[in-house]
Amino acid sequence: MNLFRLMGDVSHVLAVFILLAKIWRTRSAAGISGRSQILFTIVYLARYMDLFFSFISLYNTVMKLLFISASCATVYLIYFKFRATYDGNHDTFRIEFVLVPSLLLAFIFHYSMSFFELAWSFSIFLEAVAILPQLFMVTKTGEAENITSHYLFALGSYRALYILNWIYRYYTEGHFDPIAVCAGIVQTILYCDFFYLYVTKVLQGRKLQVLP
């Protein structure tokens, strides 16, 4: 554990809770892509199956359970409890376009040809692109509420901080995980455009608007 990794995890937890709290307090899922949330739930379920057979630390276990339960809760709120407020008409990104390539990539790049390692690889690739339905939705509606922007910023920062963590771990312990690093870089690049808009608009008190 190093400071970058810890800050990344804090940012990740913050993102998850910003989203849950926003939906809960406004009693609305407007502007949130249910499809992205389903993809994130698949990511956590596929990656954290090792909960049952490998124990790393209490911190690790608690975080894994937290991400699985929070993402399931988010999906439940969007598709069941506040279904009437969910903007399904604008949430039209075809998730098979990210599910199928992630699965194929997992079969090509993995650390061993076992079910759990394939699931792990798949989850890493899927996580990199799971935000696409949400970004697509923001582009389609042309704007995002400020809290949604904060959520996206925290979620994007998490993987960017992990990149610093990987650089640090490479120099201090020789740890190098090419699959996570490559996917993590792609994931961070996807947020760059958003980061720019966030800094130039949201942080200056304006609403995030995308030009058509």
Binding site: R5, R47, N60, Y111, S112, E117, D177, P178, I179
Partner: peptide, 10 residues
């Protein structure tokens, strides 16, 4: 052995 057969990150 795989470089990361033991996944210790989230």
């Amino acid at each position: 052995k795989a470089p990361n057969s033991f996944h210790d990150e989230l």
